[in-house]
Simulated scan of single mutants.
Amino acid sequence: METVTAGSWDELQSELFAHSWNEKLQRFRSRFAFRGLSNANYRLETSLIRLGGDYDYVERHLLRNFRKYAHRNVVERDSLWHWLSVAQHFGLPTRILDWTYSPFVAMHFATASIDKFDRDGVIWAINYVKAHELLPDCLRDKLLAEGANVLTLQLLSDTINSLDELDALASEKVVIFFEPPSVDDRIVNQYAFCSVMSDPHMVLDDWLEKYPYLARKIIIPASLKWEIRDKLDQANVNERVLFPGLDGLSRWLKRHYSPRT
């Protein structure tokens, strides 16, 4: 897997937008999913894995009870993918990982925690188009028929609508990128989409060891974080925009007025 370290703000921009030229379209259209982490040593573990214990056993119980108690508030349609997306959005441990199409949003999440400015951060970039070439025919055919690169909830629900069906999707473990429902402005403003593994035990960076050509790791040195953070704030990429509401406003103001030391 390619790993690069950005030595400056300009180098970081260059690395994040590398390989974005689409010869067929004659446009700059990146095919990478981005995920920013405040610590370069953090793995691509789902919140379900981080729950620990018999997380694979309790997954269906978590989701069943979430559906039971949340149904009257957030129901849009009764499908596995709707409920997984909404549960992830509201903090339930799931096998979903959050990604963004925006390199700047990924930069925000890599530099949002000033208590971690003493350690390197990282932005993961995964080519979701190439990753989807590994999908079983039932899903690849739907993408081809739709002319899409990322699956929607409707396309997924037409093929898979239970955890058992997801687990049995393929003998070879695969990762699926899909777009969640826009249940609030947070998802829209973060330009968010999601990934899910067909195996709830699989950590994505372990899976990528088998397909290293799919991903890049862009290391952000700790010494660069303050400059990135200040420039993102100047560009209006901050909690006030990405987390609309008084909680996001308060988080932005707290960090914005915190002393450097």
Score class of each variant (00 low, 15 high):
N22R: 05
A222Y: 01
L25Y: 10
H19Q: 15
R260Q: 11
F104N: 13
R31K: 11
E2C: 14
P244I: 03
A192L: 04
L163N: 07
D120A: 07
L204E: 04
D137C: 13
V183Q: 01
D54F: 09
H132K: 05
D115I: 05
L25P: 10
W99G: 15
W99D: 12
D118Q: 00
N236M: 15
W207I: 11
R50K: 05
H201T: 09
I219T: 09
R27C: 13
A106G: 07
Q154D: 15
D120K: 00
I176P: 06
T159Y: 08
S38W: 00
S198M: 03
N39C: 08
E146W: 09
S30N: 02
R140E: 12
D230N: 14
G7L: 11
L63T: 06
E76Y: 08
Q13H: 10
D205G: 11
D56R: 05
Y69R: 04
L134H: 13
S38C: 08
Y128Q: 03
R35C: 11
L151T: 09
K231E: 14
L144Y: 12
R27K: 13
S85W: 02
W9D: 10
R43M: 12
L12V: 07
R140D: 13
L144G: 15
A235W: 02
L37F: 05
I96C: 07
S223N: 07
I126H: 03
C138D: 14
G248V: 01
R77S: 15
L16Y: 02
I49D: 02
A18W: 04
Y213N: 13
A148G: 08
Q88W: 03
A18S: 12
A87M: 00
Q13L: 15
K231I: 14
A148H: 02
E76V: 14
S223G: 13
I96Q: 02
A87C: 01
D247W: 01
D137V: 15
